[in-house]
């Protein structure tokens, strides 16, 4: 899939508006869809990404909940298993750790363990990433979730993908973790006028190049694309892939690109150890020989609210450019 296909007949909206639109359309289409979360009612969500839904659908379908993440996800999962469809908003991904039991031990295994008698069509929508809020409000733990059989994980980088992936998530028959990023909410982008879903497991080829393949997702697409622009000015042509979907992973699109470039660099905001990049790199090595690979991610340290330390811990365009040039000059891989 190419970018131009998706921008035909589009309207420019903010990221948070894309979320609202997807929720509104799906709630209209499916009367069983109920939203659960903290401050999602009249308040409209911490990032105003639920604005207007409470007025449109009422307190029974847009339910404010106490600060009780385990119960929020557990109730969302139980209700979904019993015939409803639910979206549970966990304000920050760090807090999802409090709710891993119902998500991982119950929802992800439900279809298997009941031999298909029960399924849990639940979406856990959460917000990852660093924006000055410190060690327990900044983490990206998507790689943990990718390792859970039965869970699907998606992380859009644009309003169009937020809209299309959230719609798909809300039609899935099993649990999905949908991940926003704090720095994406104020961004704007083109979203198709016509309602449309984006299938899971399809990465987006966002920039064509021949020297190196850059693979990223979510907010890290921003520094990745900045780096690609700067590398281009230095004569290094970058093929850039936005994963969009982490589980399932679209290895075919990555493989096609790396066959052309022979070099891959992954960029993520989470930890490198057992990270998204590690997984992609190893799978790629199983598919292709003789490829140069490097990974970029957060340093192995907590993400501080101190802005100097936060910046020191995270990838940025400079670090990506340096990594790519080092790899191409033969010192890595």
């Amino acid at each position: 899939m190419t970018l131009s296909d998706e921008t035909a007949a589009a309207t420019k909206i903010f990221f948070r508006e894309a979320i609202i639109r997807a929720l509104q359309e799906e709630m209209q289409a499916d009367p069983k869809l109920t939203l659960l979360g903290q401050d999602i009612g009249a308040f409209g969500g911490s990032y105003r990404e639920f604005d207007g839904l409470f007025d449109a659908f009422g307190a029974e379908r847009v339910r404010d909940m106490p600060v009780a993440e385990a119960a929020m996800v557990g109730i969302g999962v139980g209700a979904a298993a019993a015939g409803m469809r639910t979206l549970v908003s966990i304000t920050y991904m760090d807090f999802l750790m409090l709710a891993l039991d119902p998500l991982v031990n119950y929802a992800a295994k439900l279809r298997f363990k009941t031999a298909g008698q029960l399924r849990a069509p639940v979406v856990v929508k959460t917000t990852a990433g660093a924006k000055g809020q410190g060690v327990a409000h900044s983490q990206c733990i998507e790689a943990w979730l990718m390792a859970v059989p039965g869970l699907k994980v998606v992380a859009p980088s644009t309003p169009a993908d937020a809209y299309g992936l959230l719609k798909t998530a809300l039609r899935e028959e099993g649990p999905v973790v949908y991940i926003d990023h704090k720095r994406l909410f104020p961004t704007a982008g083109h979203v198709p006028v016509k309602a449309a879903c984006i299938p899971f497991g399809q990465a987006l080829h966002v920039r064509s190049g021949s020297d190196v393949t850059l693979v990223s997702f979510s907010y890290m697409m921003t520094p990745t694309l900045q780096a690609a622009e700067r590398l281009n000015a230095q004569g290094v042509s970058c093929d850039v892939i936005d994963l969009r979907s982490l589980a399932p992973l679209d290895m075919a699109t990555i493989c096609t690109s790396v066959k052309k470039t022979g070099v891959m660099v992954t960029v993520e905001e989470g930890q490198l150890t057992c990270g998204v990049g590690s997984e992609i790199s190893f799978r790629l090595r199983e598919m292709l020989d003789g490829v140069k690979i490097a990974r970029i991610g957060a340093v192995a340290a907590p993400v501080s609210s101190n802005r100097v330390l936060e910046a020191a811990s995270l990838p940025d365009a400079d670090k990506i450019v340096t990594c790519v040039l080092t790899l191409l000059n033969g010192k890595g891989g």
Partner: peptide, 8 residues
Amino acid sequence: TIAAGVAL
């Protein structure tokens, strides 16, 4: 919590 969801 699952039971509470089924009850919902």
